[in-house]
């Protein structure tokens, strides 16, 4: 069973159609990258998957459970509590990191397991330290986010997301707020997760990163998926003229 199934999802903001009848699946262990120009609906899709936006139509299943379904035109979400439970199988990494500035890095990672998931403190702490080590920041455990570089903050945000032990990680342009040098340290961490077969859906503008990390690429345009393929096929064997033009814009 796929970890994520998106079926015929549409999303409208007023008269603007951000997503038009989108369908996609992400299998366990897969890394899928979504690329496409700004405003094509990539981020909106991620935000619908983690319930930051409500869909206008369609169905989203996470690990087989319906976050939302539509029957004869009526969109149905379960109760808030149920939505929270289902959405905790996903974890989001934001473009702007959104770390909690009043908490140390370690506390950023432990607050959810301890306060929300009611995990044993010692266990949560040990796990958080392991995660900070995974992202290479164990020495920053007691620093506050404001003391870190953007790249370091994003790595803490990745650790914080991993701490809820999600079935799928959602990355919403994780490097767009970073300069190239800092981008590299973040993409390296994400590549490391992909190598551990952590399921992920990544919205990105970094073509090289998408190519090296993702198993599959989806290309969004005007709220639709107009092309997709395995990473190698997509970049080296692209037939679609529109996508070719888009990709050539990134070649240096």
């Amino acid at each position: 069973m796929p970890i994520l199934q998106v079926e015929n999802v549409s999303k409208q903001f007023g008269s603007f159609e951000a997503l038009r009848d989108i369908s996609l699946t992400v299998e366990k262990g897969e890394a899928v990258a979504i690329i496409g120009s700004s405003g094509s609906g990539k981020s909106t899709l991620l935000r619908c998957v983690c319930n930051l936006e409500k869909v206008s139509a369609g169905q989203i299943l996470i690990d087989g459970e319906a976050l939302v379904s539509t029957q004869s035109g009526v969109v149905r979400y379960p109760k808030e509590k149920e939505i929270r439970r289902i959405c905790m199988k996903t974890a989001m990494v934001f473009q702007q990191f959104n770390l909690f500035p009043h908490l140390t890095c370690l506390e950023n990672v432990t607050i959810t397991p301890i306060k929300i998931l009611k995990q044993n403190k010692a266990e949560a702490l040990a796990n958080a330290k392991r995660l900070l080590q995974l992202v290479g920041l164990e020495d920053k455990a007691d620093s506050y986010p404001a003391m870190l570089s953007g790249g370091q903050q994003q790595r803490v945000a990745i650790a914080r997301a991993l701490a809820i032990n999600p079935d799928i990680m959602l990355f919403d342009e994780p490097t767009s707020a970073l300069d190239p040098e800092l981008t590299a340290e973040v993409t390296a961490v994400i590549a490391k997760l992909a190598a551990q077969d952590i399921t992920m859906l990544i919205v990105t503008h970094e073509m090289e990163f998408a190519r090296s990390v993702a198993d599959r690429i989806l290309f969004f345009e005007d709220g639709q998926i107009i092309g997709q393929g395995s990473s190698a096929d997509f970049f080296d064997n692209q037939q679609n003229e529109r996508i070719k033009r888009f990709l050539s814009g990134f070649q240096k």
Binding site: F94, Q96, I116
Partner: peptide
């Protein structure tokens, strides 16, 4: 910042 609410929401905070 709205991002604080969003981050907390995606982590399962009520």
């Amino acid at each position: 910042d709205r991002g604080q609410h969003e981050a907390a929401k995606t982590l399962g905070f009520t």
